[in-house]
Amino acid sequence: MHETAAAPPLISIRNLSKRFETPRGTVHAVRDVSFDIPRGSITGLVGESGSGKTTLGRALLRLIEPSDGQTFFDGIDLNTLGAGAMRAMRRRMQIIFQDPVSSLNPRMRVHEIIGEGLRAHGLGDRRKRRDMVAGLLAEVGLQPDHMSRYPHEFSGGQRQRIGIARALALEPEFIVADESVSALDVSIQAQVLNLLLEIRDKRNLTMLFIAHDLSVVEYLCDKIVVMYLGRAVEIGDAGPVYRAPAHPYTRALLSAIPIPDPERQANREILAGDIPSPLSPPSGCVFRTRCAHALETCARGEPGAHAVSANHTAFCKRIEELA
């Protein structure tokens, strides 16, 4: 499940950037982000609204074109592939969306939704595809006779299971799950999280799990990438990052989680203000305008990667003093 020296990561992102031109100027949605996603692991991409996490997830799948940088999938740079080669690669990577209502076509029956990718890639005949859909439904905890129903006949949790079955249909090696449990009630959310873990174990899937809920990410993920205003600010194995966060932003983020235990109320570090506009991000460290530890030096020059320990990096000039 974890990275070993022998197995190269399935995904390597190098200096990935995405800029959007708007009438009011250039938005740097993702800026110079690099990290690896080890095979068979779940990497969590966390950050608040405007951090660029969703844009990064899409840019790495080339659902939107990155502005700069490389995404290596099993050693192949996706950003150099032509349309035909990219289409063939798409079978190996899938996405599960947040909203199970708007991401399922209401006019299609469940077997059409799940079997669409199989049909598009010319896999199996009609009957074979029906059998495959039945198998996928069973795998995600639904009944085979659900396949002739329409999405509106299902609850939110069941619809998310349909979205997962659709993503699994082409037997991808890599899945991006974008806020895939955020819209669900907590009692249902746990069902879907456990399903994702089961599928990962069974299929040895590699996953990028994009979420704003840090407790969910801690539960699910082996590795964490924390983003703020388009930048990765901390990257590391989940245990060390959660136990000993090094970047002041990660610390504030973790201390802000409400803990469902009145006896364990933490001393909150409450951040002042809001995330700045991505149209005019602060110079130097993007977090410095809200950071309690910022010095003059933080305004000059990018912080750069500082090793906290093996497999744990923070982008902050002051981590040694703050440790």
């Binding site: 201390s255 802000a256 409400p258």
Partner: peptide
């Protein structure tokens, strides 16, 4: 967002 939630609470 969770840091803004902490401010409002």
């Amino acid at each position: 967002d969770v840091t803004i939630q902490a401010q409002i609470l």
